[in-house]
Simulated assay, not measured.
Amino acid sequence: MGGGKEWVLFWKHHVAGNWNGIWKAQAPHKARHLLWRLCRGCLPTRYRLLERRVECNLNCPVCDVEIEDEIHIFFMCAVARDSWCAAGLSSVLHNDAYQQSNAMDRIFAMCSNESSDIVGRVAMLLWCIWQNRNDKLWNDNVQTPRQIGRYAFDAWSDWYSVHKLQSNSESRTTEAGLVRWEKPALSWVKCNVDVALVPGSRRTSVRLCFRNNRGQVMAGLTQWQQTMMSSGEGEG
């Protein structure tokens, strides 16, 4: 009987949805975890707190105009909407396919229709919106929508570039014919170049490393190029 009760309890709390789409999103774990909490109804918005019988002011801490629920703080608040635009995601926000009445259905719809990169950018933006809300609530600090959107984009781009480099490095080490770095000839310097393309950003990340004939690092450089180019062009 005990096992049967546990089985019923499990399915009672199961929520159907595209959970794999959340965990496959190309974003830091903290951002994907926020999506999970949002879809599980775990974020302590003021409306959610009232549902849990916690007495509090219902107005949004950021705009102080509307009731703060998940839809308002992430999708309808003027600051949030302008942040989507600043992050280059306004077309996702206004997409007719993502106008469901609750945040969970909107997130699941995005996970089903958008690439894992776009879902990752959305996750990072929502995380930044939530952090800004908390900073305003507890510290009375607030950022402009442009600051929120640009930080979300830059933070995601930096994470994506590092993640891509790590993935490429791991895949290379598993190849049967592993190509190892070789020292240059005496009095020569070798420059290794790696390029990462960030989809949808029209930016390219370029990294260079200079080493001498003893394999010692002499100099390095990391920079963003404000243009899109192929791997061959970037490395050239």
Rank of each mutant, 00 (worst) to 15 (best):
T204E: 00
E170S: 10
V54R: 11
G236H: 10
C128K: 04
W11E: 07
V122G: 01
M228C: 08
E182K: 04
V54S: 10
N95L: 10
G88D: 08
S90L: 14
V142G: 09
H29N: 07
S116P: 03
G236Y: 05
M228E: 06
M218Q: 08
R133L: 07
N168F: 08
D194W: 09
Q225C: 12
S116C: 07
E170T: 07
P199W: 04
F210V: 00
D69A: 05
K5P: 00
L43K: 03
F10M: 15
Q26I: 08
E233N: 14
G17F: 06
S187I: 09
A103R: 00
K12Q: 07
P61V: 07
Y47H: 13
W84G: 13
C77M: 00
N102I: 07
W127V: 10
A155G: 03
H163I: 03
Y47A: 15
G88L: 05
K136N: 06
K164T: 15
A155T: 03
V162N: 14
V15G: 07
W156R: 10
N20H: 01
E51D: 06
P28K: 09
S169V: 01
C56N: 09
S116I: 04
C111P: 00
D96N: 03
V122Q: 01
Q131C: 08
I71G: 05
E51W: 01
N168V: 10
N113F: 12
M104P: 02
L221D: 05
E235P: 01
M229R: 03
H72K: 05
N212D: 15
P61C: 08
K136F: 02
I67S: 10
R150F: 04
S116L: 09
Q99A: 12
L38N: 03
I107L: 05
F75Q: 12
N59W: 04
V198F: 01
H163T: 13
R214C: 15
I118R: 08
L178R: 09
C63N: 07
P145K: 01
G177M: 09
Y98P: 01
D96Q: 04
I71C: 13
W188Y: 11
W138F: 10
W11R: 15
C85L: 06
C128D: 03
R211A: 14
